[in-house]
Design a protein around this nucleic acid. Structure first.
Length: 592
DNA sequence: GCCGTTTTCGGCCCGACTGTTTTCAGTCG
């Protein structure tokens, strides 16, 4: 059984135990164990199981080590099967209803015999739910509304779409006279590929007018909450947004708190506690004695001086002995340890890019001409733009025949020689990897090009073994310069095809093939979670917008964020190199 | 269930908001 399958089962055990009313710390131990397993390399997991050393991993103790080993070697776990059989399968999905947690599920199940969403709807309609202790008419109504809207409300949103909503809101907040500082936080600020909801953190002198402005935003369908420091709204699109207003002294703490992933924040608080400090969105204070952080901060005693000294996130990290951790790294995946050792990477920035290689024109399925695309690249300050239109087998995308491709090569050469643009165009192709792993053009044709992006565009249904072999064959082809979108996934719309990413990465490193980080907001793969280790082992990245129109070039912004989440530095990305170096790189590849 | 240069037992991150209450439990992030 693979590590991700094992992690999923541990997560599910956590949920099932929670529904049983188990000790919440035991529940957390299973969930933490799932994260620990996910963080391993598949090969490491096998080695640790074999050597009986699973316990050496933080978060895995005697009980989990036994269970993980059983899952890994037999693919089954008696404990899990018994647990699962003891709980009605419909109960887990009740947890998806907003406002319904494990305790409410338990009450509904034991007192009303609710075993499914259908049962729950019936119980609400009868008014039985409102009569339960701890429930009421409003709760019953909210449950029904939550069930009705669960699809729209539960949906995540592409980072790109969320950013388009969030950016004008941040600008609007900053323009208010009461507002001193305003930032978007949450998964948006961390650059996660999809975003569940928006978080805005504001330092303001007066709360009321800011909340009024926020809840009165165009497109707000519903105000779902409004307290002293927080307001929540839901937009027509289903996207929810939270606004939190704090005194300016607490802004850095609130921004950090609402930016970090849960894991990052837990680790930061544990680190604070180990130093006798208590950290929250309100501040950083000595942990001893009575009272909450908030109370201590408000008491304004000597402790407050410590808080007052922290005005920025950088100072907050410094107070805990850490270098500044960029938001994109705050996932609880080793960034705190690296910051402690002073080993955080200097992450790539959008300004480091000097061009990109995977772009389309009207010659295939793009919406702008070669000249328009190159002009747009130059306007971005780029030195070069690689043109990689589709190959003939992608007839759905108006793929180029040999003849049309060679015409384009001539056209590009002529454009470069004309001196019309300072930016230079490179001749490439996005060449289909055929179902048997051959490329869509013969060697003589491919030899006319500066470079080749090889991608899979059809027969997605192949088994993992067949698909992996297909892609490996393309990587081994001497004309292949880089591999396009690895799994063909479309975020929130379509799973990628099955492929053994580890084998593909190994082969790409061995053959000196670049793997692209496709920056299209719908793709964003090779996934950032795989980049850190792959790049450490020598895999070279290209951040490619896969632009089908001039505006699509801007998508590299999303690609840079994903690269930063993958700990990538400038040196690990081909399109940060100057034009002459890239030309030399292509020439060397062609000369193999 | 995990973990320990204060601990092998007794802790385990912290606070806002809602709806139910009359001081708080549950949920969420």
């Amino acid at each position: 059984m693979t590590k991700n399958e094992i992690a999923e089962i541990l997560d599910e055990i956590g949920m099932l135990l929670e529904l049983q009313g188990e000790n919440p710390f035991k529940v957390r131990a299973y969930v933490a164990g799932a994260r620990a397993v996910e963080a391993m390399e598949g090969a490491d997991l096998a080695r640790l199981v074999e050597a009986g050393e699973l316990k050496s991993v933080k978060g895995i103790g005697d009980a989990l080590a036994l269970k993980i080993a059983e899952l890994h070697t037999t693919g089954r776990l008696g404990f899990y099967e018994k647990l699962k059989a003891s709980i009605a399968p419909g109960l887990l999905e009740l947890r998806e209803i907003p406002g319904v947690g494990p305790k409410k599920v338990r009450a509904l199940h034991t007192q009303l015999g609710v075993n499914s969403i259908a049962d729950l709807i019936a119980a609400c309609n009868d008014g039985r739910v409102a009569e339960l202790a701890g429930f009421g008419a409003k709760t019953q109504e909210k449950i029904l509304a939550g069930i009705r809207n669960r699809e729209a409300y539960g949906r995540r949103h592409l980072w790109w779409d969320a950013a388009e909503v969030a950016e004008p809101i941040v600008a609007g907040l900053r323009a208010l006279p009461q507002v001193r500082r305003a930032e978007a936080a949450g998964s948006l600020r961390r650059g996660l590929e999809t975003v569940g909801d928006l978080d805005f953190i504001v330092a303001a002198s007066d709360v009321g007018p800011v909340m009024d402005w926020f809840t009165g935003l165009a497109g707000v369908k519903e105000i779902t909450g409004r307290g002293e420091t927080k307001a929540s709204v839901r937009f027509e699109s289903g996207l929810q947004a939270d606004l939190r207003i704090v005194p300016e002294e607490q802004f850095a703490f609130a921004l950090h708190h609402f930016t970090g992933s849960k894991d990052h924040n837990v680790q930061m608080r544990q680190r604070a506690l180990a130093r006798g400090l208590s950290l929250s969105e309100w501040g950083l204070v000595p942990a001893e004695g009575e009272g909450t952080v908030k109370a201590k901060v408000e008491a304004g005693d000597a402790l407050r001086k410590k808080v007052a000294g922290v005005k920025t996130e950088a100072e907050l990290f410094a107070a805990l002995g850490l270098a500044f951790i960029p938001p994109e790294l705050r996932e609880g995946m080793g960034e705190i340890e690296a910051a402690e050792r002073g080993e955080l990477p200097r992450l790539v920035e959008a300004g480091d890019l000097r061009g990109a290689f995977h772009n389309h024109t009207t010659a295939s399925d793009g919406r702008n001409t070669l000249i328009e695309m190159v002009a747009a690249a130059e306007a971005l300050g780029w030195e070069y733009l690689g043109i990689a239109d589709h190959s003939k087998s992608s007839f759905q995308a108006n793929g180029l025949s040999e003849e049309r491709l060679l015409m384009q090569v001539a056209e590009i050469r002529k454009l470069n020689e004309s001196g019309r643009f300072k930016a230079q165009a490179f001749s490439g192709v996005e060449c289909d990897i055929l179902p048997d792993g051959r490329l869509d053009f013969d060697d003589a044709t491919l030899a006319q090009l500066d470079y080749v992006v090889a991608s899979v565009h059809n027969v997605f249904s192949q088994s993992e073994a067949v698909m992996t072999a297909r892609i490996l064959k393309a990587i081994e082809h001497p004309r292949t310069t880089m591999l396009g979108h690895l799994t063909g996934r479309l975020l929130l719309r379509r799973e990628g095809y099955q492929v053994d990413a580890a084998k593909v990465i190994d082969a790409a490193i061995a053959h000196g093939v670049v793997i692209e980080l496709n920056a299209s907001p719908w793709r964003l793969e090779l996934d950032w979670r795989l980049w850190k280790k792959a790049a450490e082992r020598g895999l070279l990245c290209a951040i490619n917008p896969d632009a089908h129109e001039t505006a699509g070039l801007e998508h590299v912004r999303a690609g840079v964020l994903a690269a930063r989440k993958g700990w990538l530095q400038r040196e690990q990305i081909l399109n940060t190199r100057p034009r002459a170096d890239v030309a030399a790189y292509f020439a060397a590849r062609r000369g193999r």
